[in-house]
Design a protein around this nucleic acid. Sequence first.
DNA 1: AAGCAAATCACATCTTTATGCGACCCTGAT
DNA 2: ATCAGGGTCGCATAAAGATGTGATTTGCTT
Lengths: 210, 210
Amino acid sequence: MIKVVYYEDNRNLREGITFLLQATPQLELVGAFADCRNIQEEIRTLQPDVVLMDIDLPGMSGIEAVPVVKAIAPQTQVMMLTVFDNEEKIFQAIRNGASGYLLKHTPPSEIVEAIFDVHKGGSPMTANVARKVLQFFQQQRSAKTEDYNLSARELDIIKGLVSGYSYKLIADELHISIDTVRSHIRHIYDKLHVNSKTEAILKAMKEGLV
Amino acid sequence: MIKVVYYEDNRNLREGITFLLQATPQLELVGAFADCRNIQEEIRTLQPDVVLMDIDLPGMSGIEAVPVVKAIAPQTQVMMLTVFDNEEKIFQAIRNGASGYLLKHTPPSEIVEAIFDVHKGGSPMTANVARKVLQFFQQQRSAKTEDYNLSARELDIIKGLVSGYSYKLIADELHISIDTVRSHIRHIYDKLHVNSKTEAILKAMKEGLV
DNA sequence: AAGCAAATCACATCTTTATGCGACCCTGAT
DNA sequence: ATCAGGGTCGCATAAAGATGTGATTTGCTT
């Protein structure tokens, strides 16, 4: 049996989902609450396996509640169930430790399945939400198309910079003189259109050159 | 009608999925190939809406093929369909521009549904895959627990550094003298246990202090 | 009231970076 | 054979950053 606790302030919805979960074998709804006022005590005493969490709750928001749950019961999986599909809220929830993110229009059968998924170590997400998450990764490399054609040696040098080394250290590392390092760095600045170590490092990191 | 192209070297599987897709109204399978030898031409002439891509193909791997597809037809959605659920491959595929990632054990009905999802702008992912993606975000903030307790002003300063500004620029920006900036930076170095601008910036970025 | 940390500024000194101007060697392309 | 570009090195100067020492003010805690 998977023990589930549910937070949702809308009474109709709460009762609907409550009914759904109670009707599902192998799920045990051990609590359904309209706010997170007493969430610490509830989690501590009920020890749920899965928490279904709305976001727009009176008082403490569902997003703020996630780390509270994870602090008390780290193995408990928290799944957001909300109408918000904006990036800000999605990323906040994930960073706070949520393991799943469903939009409320999800059909009941999938909600139930998602509870099993999240309990098994998966991360069910509505496809829309997943797209936003993936875009985060993709945008990181979009600039890589822009080619600064740094030479192999120049890449060695800038890797050193990104590692936080001084010119002297890089010179030792690569067994070349410090003046050679300077020379390479000049060329790197030209190619990247920057004129300080810091800018070069930031650009290299952002553009994924290293 | 959604035009689909499918790459898969295993003949049995290819024929199975081919049959499945052909049997689905609103999907039009316009090509199924065992390798990516002629992928450029195939994509150009067939102009698919969705590409289903295996990873372990002879010659060019499915992961390498993704950017090729996106270069020719940026609006075409690529969905990986593979047995590999290791992080390395997942992240490579996503960074290369894949919009979905299903494991092969996915039931046929869900594969079909995923094709519609990905075409609508979603990113269907097997729950396991999604978990790995989410963990990437979560680990980024784990270090934030380590608290260097920088003051508000010190955070202003380090934000300036991370933006690539010189001491002078930061001083102007914050309407304080350059010596004050120096002073703050000394304190930041103490608190972060570093002793150069570069190290401070790298640490601040990695630990998500900014 | 005393103590303390944060924020402000100053001056001095030394190190690191940035940049200008050359130079030499090697390799692959014209 | 010449030329371009990468990689190597040197010297010199100017700008930026790192560090030592110390001082004043403000606001919060004890």
